[in-house]
């Protein structure tokens, strides 16, 4: 029994150590003064601040960072707004077309982006949105996941609350804004986080729709990093580290919601 506990502990520490090793190697190489040591095992001084300064001074990293933030915060906020409205209505209000809409939302959950990118690109081209922010943002603005998440959560709002508010003469939109939204807050935070993290890592769509460097978000910028400051391994790693920081901060601040988002659908409800 005692031997089992020790064995288990050793295994866990070794396993988690291996899971962290690449992250540690990233920190080491990102802090290196040059490209001579790429093993990523031993710190050779701590030049991370200088490396970041070089990237922000000479490269386009600030532009990519700004574009990613606009993209993620913008579409995240819109997704939260529209999914909150639709998810609440689909859970709590009866209106014509509700079932059709629900089928449409569920159906899209199964579709792969590889099928949709071609026609969506043609639509965006038709709208004249190639190489624009709206072209990058609008097609990925609302997710079936978001509508579904909010709907499942909104099913738990007690009917009596809404009935009481109606009896007091509150209008439907007021009930939504004043009663439903506050109750849905945990689901909406989860949705924003999941949306932000997904969009932060979205390479395929910006790659297709944005050819101008001025518009590139971080993943596309990283993919073209060689042509930036002259390809150096340690500066590429520093750029990767900078890319990883905002999701990390959000995850630390909103850990509970992150786990809730990951496990949504996986646990018994």
């Amino acid at each position: 029994m005692r031997a089992g506990t020790i064995l288990r502990t050793v295994w866990l520490i070794v396993a988690v150590g291996f899971m962290l090793l690449p992250v540690y190697a990233m920190l080491v190489v990102a802090s290196a003064p040059d490209d001579t040591d790429l093993r990523g095992l031993v710190f050779n001084g701590f030049h991370l601040p200088e490396n970041i300064r070089v990237l922000f001074g000479e490269g386009n990293l600030p532009t990519y960072l700004r574009n990613s933030l606009i993209l993620c915060v913008g579409t995240g906020a819109l997704d939260v707004l529209f999914s909150a409205a639709a998810g609440y209505a689909m859970a709590q209000l009866s209106f014509p077309g509700r079932r059709v809409l629900f089928a449409l939302v569920i159906g899209t959950l199964a579709l792969t982006p590889m099928v949709l990118v071609i026609p969506v690109f043609l639509i965006v081209k038709e709208l004249g949105w190639v190489n624009t922010f709206q072209g990058m943002m609008v097609p990925g603005m609302i997710s079936a996941f978001g509508v579904f998440l909010v709907r499942q959560f909104a099913l738990g709002i007690p009917k009596e609350l809404l009935l009481a508010a109606r009896a007091d003469g509150a209008g439907e939109f007021r009930i939504f804004a004043r009663i439903a939204v506050p109750l849905l807050k945990p689901a909406l935070i989860t949705l924003f986080l999941v949306h932000f993290l997904g969009q932060w890592d979205n390479l395929l769509w910006p790659l297709i729709v944005a050819n101008e460097q001025e518009l590139w978000p971080l993943p596309v910028g990283l993919a073209n990093f060689q042509s930036e400051v002259g390809f150096t391994y340690h500066l590429t790693t520093t750029a990767a580290l900078v890319t990883a920081v905002p999701p990390f901060i959000l995850m630390v601040a909103l850990q509970r919601y992150y786990v809730a988002g990951l496990t949504f659908g996986g646990l018994k409800r």
């Binding site: 529209f82 999914s83 409205a85 639709a86 609440y88 209505a89 689909m90 209000l93 009866s94 209106f95 014509p96 077309g97 509700r98 809409l101 449409l104 939302v105 899209t108 579709l111 099928v115 949709l116 071609i118 026609p119 969506v120 043609l122 639509i123 609008v138 097609p139 603005m141 609302i142 079936a144 509508v147 209008g171 439907e172 939109f173 939504f176």
Partner: peptide
């Protein structure tokens, strides 16, 4: 209630038709 239901879901419905259903059929 029906009016509110339609109004609250309309943007999402339009979005899913334009950026999911139509592209799927087009594909």
């Amino acid at each position: 209630e029906a009016t509110a239901g339609v109004a609250l879901t309309l943007p999402v419905a339009v979005f899913f038709v334009v950026f999911w259903l139509v592209p799927f059929l087009a594909a």
